[in-house]
């Protein structure tokens, strides 16, 4: 080791040069725009893929998509979904979910239920502000889930699209779940195109 290097090291040590170097970095940051968000006055832009609160969806004509197949219930890793399915009395021989509960306190927001749903009746939204004083309100029932679905329908559609659950084409637009076993009546519509 040469003398000059030693001398430099000594000087650095005496001058606390590494501190000065670090302070330089710190001081330059005084002129950077802060990255902090002033939530709730400012809000983050949330990507379309975001896995927020779950919602139940309707078709464009207002009919419930859910057919009560209970697949979301079995797909859920945290067992937070409960579906009670039954026969629709007004539309004989149709199955539907008479009750649908998601215990959002148990939910892990993995999105498996959406992936499982064979009719795309479930979707996740960007909604994340539902803090409450009453824990009981965090058991989302069917009504609440449909309300979320109506309010955040655009989020839900974007979510399904972003996660490859739906494509933005005619087939998905026309898609309706068709109950093949219903009693044929004169008013019964013919099966949709994708089934013929």
């Amino acid at each position: 080791m040469s003398v000059s290097v030693l001398a430099k090291q000594l000087l650095d040590a005496v001058m606390f040069r590494e501190i000065w170097n670090a302070m330089k970095v710190t001081f330059t940051h005084m002129f950077h725009r802060p990255i902090t968000f002033q939530y709730p006055r400012e809000e983050r832009t949330i990507p379309d893929t975001h896995r927020g609160a779950l919602a139940l969806l309707r078709y464009d004509d207002g009919a419930e998509r859910c057919v009560g197949c209970d697949l979301c219930e079995v797909a859920c890793p945290s067992h937070c979904i409960k579906v009670v399915s039954t026969e629709d009395e007004s539309l004989p021989l149709r199955r539907y979910a008479s009750e649908f509960y998601i215990d959002i306190t148990k939910c892990v927001f993995c999105g498996y239920c959406v992936e499982a749903c064979p009719v795309n009746a479930l979707a996740m939204t960007k909604m994340y502000e539902y803090s409450t004083h009453d824990k009981r309100t965090l058991l989302f029932d069917k009504k609440r889930l449909y309300e979320i679905g109506e309010r955040f329908i655009e989020d839900a559609k974007k979510y399904l699209y972003a996660h490859n659950q739906e494509k933005n084409d005619q087939m998905f637009h026309d898609y309706r779940y068709f109950f093949p076993q219903s009693v044929l009546k004169p008013t019964q519509p013919l099966p949709p195109k994708h089934l013929t």
């Binding site: 057919v67 697949l71 064979p118 779940y177 109950f179 093949p180 076993q181 089934l195």
Partner: peptide
């Protein structure tokens, strides 16, 4: 010839 009705 089986219908598509696993969900129900």
């Amino acid at each position: 010839v089986h219908p598509l009705d696993c969900p129900v």
